[in-house]
């Protein structure tokens, strides 16, 4: 699921932070956990069932925003990421009709090029609409990166806009990140054909 799990609780608050990186997700019903992420043109969905007391976050980026050279096939990364999050919540006792989602990210980080951030955000909003999942808003678009913190059990959220210097650092990291590749053949030890 997510990388960057810090099991040491914050001595002041008792909270434990889980940093959700691109391509990952995390679901929990532990009230001491805070899910965090840093977003540029990527999008994170913060989803929870307030009755079941379970919530989670994913973090995805569609290659080329799901358009141009990558074609509509690129949407599969977004669909898969959202599906993993929804199914993870359902496994922990959430009900689909009670799920509430807020979306963050989708900024236009580089002027003059295709607005990948807008494509990512539009995809996520459209996904929720098509699947009939409640969308409670959030913060999409703009030209600045964001730090997001999400307390999934309590439902509290905090967003901080990122300064230019910090943006340059993580945009450089994002560009050098490897775009996830779909397995051409099955992973794992099972092979039928």
């Amino acid at each position: 699921m997510a990388t960057g799990f810090d099991y040491r609780p914050d001595p002041a608050t008792g909270e434990r932070r889980v940093h959700v990186v691109q391509g990952e997700y995390h679901v929990t019903d532990d009230p001491s956990i805070v899910l965090t992420t840093i977003l540029g043109s990527c999008v994170a969905a913060c989803m929870r069932d307030p009755v079941a007391g379970v919530g989670g976050m994913n973090h995805f980026l569609l290659p080329d925003g799901g358009t141009s050279s990558s074609g509509p096939e690129a949407l599969r990364y977004g669909v898969h990421s959202m599906e993993l999050l929804v199914n993870g919540l359902l496994k922990r006792g959430a009900r689909r009709d009670r799920l509430e989602t807020r979306l963050f990210g989708g900024a236009r980080m580089v002027q003059g090029l295709t607005d990948i951030g807008e494509k990512n955000g539009s995809f996520a909003v459209e996904f929720l609409r098509r699947e009939g999942l409640a969308y409670l808003g959030g913060s999409l678009g703009g030209t600045h990166g964001r730090r997001v913190q999400f307390w999934p059990v309590a439902g509290r959220m905090r967003q901080m806009m990122v300064g230019r210097e910090e943006e340059r650092i993580f945009e450089k990291e994002r560009r050098s990140a490897v775009v996830p590749q779909a397995p051409q053949v099955a992973t794992g030890e099972l092979e039928l054909f």
Partner: peptide, 24 residues
């Protein structure tokens, strides 16, 4: 993996791991 093993017991013909390409 466990799901695939169970599916094999019940006679699945093949399986595919998400996310997948059209070629796959």
């Amino acid at each position: 993996t466990e799901v695939v093993k169970r599916a094999m017991q019940y006679g699945v013909n093949n399986y595919i791991v998400k996310p997948f390409t059209v070629a796959a």
